[in-house]
C-alpha cells in the first residue's frame, strides 16, 4: 500500500495502482466527466494514463456541479 492525499484526505491505494488512469478506474470514473489535478498540475484527459502515481502525491478529482 502507499498513501496519497486525495481530495484533501489521506488515502491508501494498492501498490498496483500505478497511474492516475488506474486510480480513476479503481473508482469506476474512467468514463465519467471528471478533471484531475496531480501535485498542483491540471491534467488533460490524455495525460491520465501516462501520469505515474507515487506515495505522497496530492491528487484532486473534481467535477461539474450545479451552480450559478
Amino acid at each position: 500500500m502507499k498513501t496519497i492525499q486525495l481530495n484533501g484526505q489521506p488515502y491508501e491505494v494498492e501498490k498496483h495502482i500505478d497511474t492516475i488512469g488506474d486510480l480513476l478506474e479503481h473508482f469506476h470514473l474512467g468514463e465519467r466527466i471528471v478533471i484531475v489535478e496531480h501535485n498542483r498540475r491540471v491534467l488533460s484527459k490524455e495525460d491520465h494514463k501516462a501520469t505515474p502515481l507515487r506515495a505522497g502525491d496530492v491528487v484532486e478529482i473534481v467535477h461539474f456541479v450545479g451552480g450559478g
Binding site: 481530495n7 470514473l29 473534481v62 461539474f64 450545479g66 451552480g67
Partner: peptide
C-alpha cells in the same frame, strides 16, 4: 456550473 471535489466514495450520485 460550479467545480467541486467529487465524492469518490459515492461517485454514482446523479449529476
Amino acid at each position: 456550473f460550479a467545480i467541486r471535489r467529487l465524492d469518490v466514495f459515492n461517485p454514482d450520485q446523479p449529476n
